[in-house]
Amino acid sequence: MDTSNLAPATDDADEKRIRELVARTQEAQADPDVLPALHTSDLVLINLGGRRLFGRETFVSAMTEALSSPLKDIRTTLEIDDIRFATPDVAIVSLTKTVHDERAEGDEGDDLPELPLTGAMTYVMTRTDGDWRISLAQTKPIR
């Protein structure tokens, strides 16, 4: 993708709010009441395993299901690599996701596929009524 015509951040406050939103997503990764609310109602999410979800309600269901399985013991951390503004109200955020598999050896559900330890993640964030929300989240495994 040619990013040469993407506008640079014109407001340091926007970049700060985006960084805070990313931090909140990481803190709320096991909270199905908080994490989905940080996304738009019509979000598209493609997880590390390639599962695609459409809409916040589908995300809530998938997250609730995952948290009642051995996946509850998988934690991730995010590092922001780049923030670019396509418009003043649309930001493309490139991140590196690191997976921390904290399942105990022999846990039920060890038949889950092995997860890659890192992923290249992209958020498309949109601002509505002054609040930034994640509209698209996609993670590509780095093998």
Rank of each mutant, 00 (worst) to 15 (best):
T98I: 09
W132K: 10
E20W: 04
P8A: 14
A37T: 12
A7L: 15
F85W: 11
L95Y: 02
L117M: 09
A104N: 04
V124Q: 08
I92A: 07
L78Y: 11
A120M: 05
E105T: 13
T122A: 08
D33N: 13
P8L: 12
A9H: 04
D131Y: 05
S41V: 11
P70E: 10
R84P: 01
T128I: 08
F59T: 03
V93R: 03
K72F: 03
A23D: 14
T118W: 00
L6K: 08
T87E: 11
G106V: 09
D12R: 09
R17D: 15
E27T: 13
K16H: 11
L43T: 15
I74S: 03
P36L: 06
E79M: 04
A7F: 05
G130T: 08
A66F: 06
E114Q: 13
D107Q: 14
A28P: 03
R17M: 12
P70W: 10
D33C: 00
G49N: 10
A86N: 00
T128K: 12
D42A: 06
A37V: 04
I46F: 02
P88N: 13
K97C: 02
T128A: 14
A91F: 01
L53K: 01
P32Q: 09
D42Q: 05
A9L: 10
G49D: 07
P32N: 13
T122Y: 08
T126L: 15
T98A: 11
L45H: 13
E79S: 11
V60P: 06
L45S: 06
A30I: 03
T64N: 13
T10W: 04
G130Q: 07
A66Y: 07
R51Q: 14
K16F: 03
E105N: 03
T64L: 06
A91C: 01
D42C: 00
K72Y: 01
T64K: 14
F54I: 11
F59C: 01
D110N: 14
T128R: 14
G49H: 00
M63C: 03
A7V: 14
E57R: 00
S69A: 06
H39D: 01
T25L: 13
A91D: 00
